Computed example of a mutant assay.
Amino acid sequence: MNNFYNEILTEHNVRPEFKYDLECPTIQLEGVNPNCGDDIWLNLVMKDGVIQDASFNGDGCAISQASADIMIGMIIGKTKAEALHLSDLFLKMIKGTATDAEVEELEEASALQDISHMPARVKCAVLGWRTLREAIEKLDSEA
């Protein structure tokens, strides 16, 4: 893995900006990766269809923790549709089917692009993104 990208992942793992308890989230959803035991709780504060605030908590490998932290930094202030779009792009990138322009749109999350070459770590990288999608779908089904 490229050193620059490794530094981004290490920074987000060692000093995550969004790993804390969020008071009164609109939705809190647990995401678990049974393969390796990664376990996160995603907290979202939604207002008028926009993610006003978000955080996560939990335990897991450096990749799952860094990926969740990067994701949250990207989705705050976004609409549900914009957040789902980013999630779709992230999953395409991890599957190796994203275009260069799509990868570029992922900004810091593109640091995880090389994970596509490490099948055992893919579920770690997508845990936060998958939990985000499930949380939004759950909110939509309750609306």
Rank of each mutant, 00 (worst) to 15 (best):
residue 85 H to S: 01
residue 29 L to D: 04
residue 24 C to S: 15
residue 92 K to A: 15
residue 122 V to N: 10
residue 137 E to N: 06
residue 35 N to S: 14
residue 48 D to T: 10
residue 32 V to C: 06
residue 4 F to R: 14
residue 75 I to V: 09
residue 100 D to M: 06
residue 43 N to C: 14
residue 114 D to T: 08
residue 74 M to W: 02
residue 58 G to A: 09
residue 39 D to N: 15
residue 10 T to R: 07
residue 61 C to E: 09
residue 35 N to L: 15
residue 9 L to Q: 04
residue 54 A to W: 14
residue 75 I to D: 04
residue 63 I to V: 11
residue 89 L to P: 09
residue 141 S to V: 03
residue 76 I to A: 12
residue 18 F to A: 09
residue 21 D to M: 08
residue 48 D to A: 11
residue 103 V to G: 10
residue 47 K to N: 08
residue 17 E to G: 00
residue 69 D to I: 02
residue 84 L to T: 06
residue 72 I to Q: 04
residue 116 S to E: 00
residue 120 A to R: 04
residue 138 K to N: 09
residue 33 N to G: 06
residue 38 D to K: 10
residue 28 Q to V: 01
residue 124 C to L: 08
residue 16 P to W: 05
residue 91 L to D: 11
residue 4 F to L: 15
residue 131 T to P: 02
residue 95 K to W: 05
residue 130 R to M: 12
residue 22 L to H: 09
residue 105 E to S: 15
residue 16 P to Q: 03
residue 34 P to A: 10
residue 57 N to Y: 12
residue 95 K to A: 15
residue 36 C to W: 12
residue 3 N to A: 10
residue 32 V to A: 03
residue 140 D to S: 03
residue 14 V to K: 13
residue 53 D to Y: 02
residue 112 L to W: 02
residue 129 W to Y: 03
residue 49 G to Y: 07
residue 131 T to E: 01
residue 132 L to Q: 06
residue 80 K to Y: 05
residue 11 E to Q: 13
residue 103 V to R: 14
residue 56 F to R: 07
residue 107 E to F: 05
residue 53 D to K: 04
residue 48 D to Y: 06
residue 122 V to C: 12
residue 10 T to L: 13
residue 132 L to D: 08
residue 51 I to F: 01
residue 38 D to M: 08
residue 137 E to Y: 03
residue 99 T to S: 15
residue 44 L to V: 11
residue 16 P to M: 03
residue 25 P to W: 01
residue 80 K to N: 10
residue 15 R to Y: 10
residue 45 V to H: 06
residue 53 D to T: 09
residue 133 R to W: 02
residue 31 G to F: 08
residue 88 D to C: 05
residue 71 M to L: 15
residue 81 A to Q: 14
residue 106 L to P: 06
residue 56 F to E: 07
residue 26 T to D: 04
residue 142 E to V: 09
residue 31 G to W: 04
residue 94 I to D: 12
residue 77 G to L: 05
residue 120 A to G: 04
residue 23 E to N: 10
residue 123 K to W: 07
residue 64 S to A: 15
residue 2 N to V: 00
residue 95 K to H: 14
residue 1 M to L: 11
residue 81 A to W: 00
residue 32 V to T: 12
residue 113 Q to T: 03
residue 46 M to Q: 13
residue 25 P to A: 01
residue 92 K to E: 15
residue 35 N to M: 14
residue 9 L to T: 01
residue 53 D to V: 05
residue 63 I to L: 00
residue 73 G to N: 04
residue 60 G to T: 03
residue 36 C to T: 08
residue 35 N to R: 11
residue 43 N to K: 14
residue 32 V to Q: 06
residue 5 Y to M: 03
residue 22 L to P: 12
residue 30 E to N: 12
residue 94 I to A: 05
residue 3 N to I: 06
